[in-house]
Computed example of a mutant assay.
Amino acid sequence: MTARWQHLKLIFSFALPGYLLTIVLNATLIMIIAFEKALHEPMYIFLCNLCVNDLCGTTGFYPRALVYLLTETNRISLEECIVQSLVIIVYAVGELSNLSVMAIDRYIAICQPLQYPGIMSPFTVRSLVTFIWIFPCFVSIIAILVAMKHPICRHDIDKLFCENLSLVNLGCKEDISYGIFNGWMYASITVFTGLVLISYLKIILACRRSKVNQEKFFSTCMPHLIIFLNYIICSFFDSSQTELRAKTLSRKLYTFLSVVYLTVPPVVNPIIYGIKLRQVRAKILYILQFKN
């Protein structure tokens, strides 16, 4: 058995439990929210969508990576690569759009509590949930169309998974359309991030004058803020490693940083919400006690 094979088996022994743990944690939170009528509120509905999105992202990444680690089969068809790219783009954009909607929901709940039931009506919630999924799907389709605009001239992918940049790099040439798409995406990310930061700035200012709001902030907003910062930091690792790859990073560190945003947020999100949200925590404890 070669040292490389032993190394791959070691990574597999951590990756498979990590994938299974991610599925169990997110599926548990989804089922708790789905079956507990007391949790059929906007905040928990958006949280449920976040967990579904996390499952989509990890399922787009883990199975193919596990096959590679177990068999050292590092070939993937163009069709499979496109599908994986679609799923991962939907996850990446969906995570940010979901977190932005959740920030706006918390802002209205804390800063405009009397108007909250009217503003966050069932129609509004359905519209926001639709946006959470339609926008990432639209972005992913545009990204793939731009990436596959030109014929394929290369066949090597410098990552453990396929994503938009990988497909673009396979093309015979690049044109201005990819730059325009990138500019539009950076503008969208800036808008989403700005919405979250402005919402939390206003929430923090409102909490300074009210103990009740301070309690709401620590019980419902703090988990969301932690998750948002966690996702931004993990995404920064992925976006920055491309530039650093040729200069300072080893191959192993490069690979690790490229998958952080696909592996860490999906497993951390349900843990943080399960611990910090009182109603979710109470339901989990009830289930554990019932089983005992």
Results as ranks from 00 to 15, higher is better:
Leu50Glu: 13
Cys51Arg: 15
Val52Pro: 06
Val52Glu: 12
Asn53Thr: 14
Asn53Tyr: 02
Asn53Pro: 02
Asp54Gly: 15
Gly57His: 06
Gly57Asp: 03
Thr58Pro: 07
Gly60Ile: 08
Phe61Arg: 07
Phe61Trp: 03
Tyr62Gly: 01
Tyr62Cys: 14
Arg64Met: 10
Arg64Ile: 03
Ala65Asp: 12
Ala65Met: 04
Ala65Asn: 11
Leu66Glu: 14
Val67Phe: 02
Tyr68Trp: 13
Leu69Gly: 03
Thr71Phe: 06
Thr71Met: 01
Glu72Pro: 09
Thr73Gln: 15
Thr73Ile: 12
Asn74Gln: 10
Asn74Lys: 06
Arg75Tyr: 12
Arg75Ala: 11
Ile76Cys: 03
Ile76Glu: 09
Ser77Phe: 04
Leu78Met: 13
Glu80Ala: 14
Glu80Tyr: 09
Glu80Gly: 03
Cys81His: 05
Cys81Ile: 11
Cys81Leu: 00
Val83Thr: 11
Val83Arg: 14
Gln84Ala: 08
Ser85Tyr: 06
Ser85Val: 08
Ile88Thr: 10
Ile89Asp: 09
Val90Pro: 06
Tyr91Lys: 08
Ala92Phe: 04
Glu95Leu: 11
Leu96His: 08
Ser97Gln: 10
Asn98Lys: 08
Asn98Pro: 12
Leu99Met: 08
Leu99Val: 08
Ser100Val: 10
Ser100Glu: 01
Ser100Lys: 12
Ser100Leu: 15
Met102Ile: 14
Ala103Gly: 08
Asp105Cys: 14
Arg106His: 03
Arg106Ser: 00
Arg106Thr: 07
Tyr107Thr: 11
Ile110Tyr: 05
Ile110Arg: 11
Cys111Thr: 04
Gln112Leu: 12
Gln112Trp: 07
Pro113Ile: 09
Leu114Pro: 05
Leu114Glu: 01
Leu114Asp: 00
Gln115Trp: 07
Gly118Ala: 07
Gly118Thr: 12
Ser121Glu: 01
Ser121Phe: 04
Pro122Glu: 06
Pro122Leu: 10
Thr124Tyr: 10
Val125Ile: 04
Arg126Lys: 15
Ser127Tyr: 06
Leu128Tyr: 08
Val129Gln: 11
Thr130Glu: 05
Thr130Asn: 14
Phe131Leu: 11
Phe135Val: 11
Cys137Gly: 14
Cys137Asp: 06
Cys137Arg: 13
Phe138Gln: 09
Val139Arg: 02
Val139Glu: 02
Ser140Ile: 01
Ser140Phe: 03
Ser140Gln: 10
Ser140Glu: 05
Val146Gln: 04
Lys149Met: 07
Lys149Val: 00
Lys149Ser: 07
His150Ala: 03
Pro151Val: 00
Ile152Met: 12
Ile152Asn: 12
His155Thr: 00
Ile157Val: 06
Lys159Gly: 11
Leu160Thr: 11
Phe161Lys: 07
Phe161Gln: 11
Cys162Leu: 00
Cys162Gly: 08
Glu163Asp: 15
Glu163Ala: 07
Glu163Cys: 08
Ser166Gln: 13
Leu167Thr: 10
Leu167Cys: 02
Leu167Met: 05
Leu167Ile: 03
Leu167Gly: 04
Asn169Ile: 00
Asn169Met: 09
Asn169Asp: 07
Leu170Asn: 06
Gly171Asn: 07
Glu174Gly: 05
Asp175Trp: 05
Ser177Trp: 05
Tyr178Cys: 11
Tyr178Ser: 09
Gly179Arg: 03
Ile180Val: 13
Phe181Trp: 12
Phe181Ile: 09
Asn182Trp: 09
Asn182Ser: 13
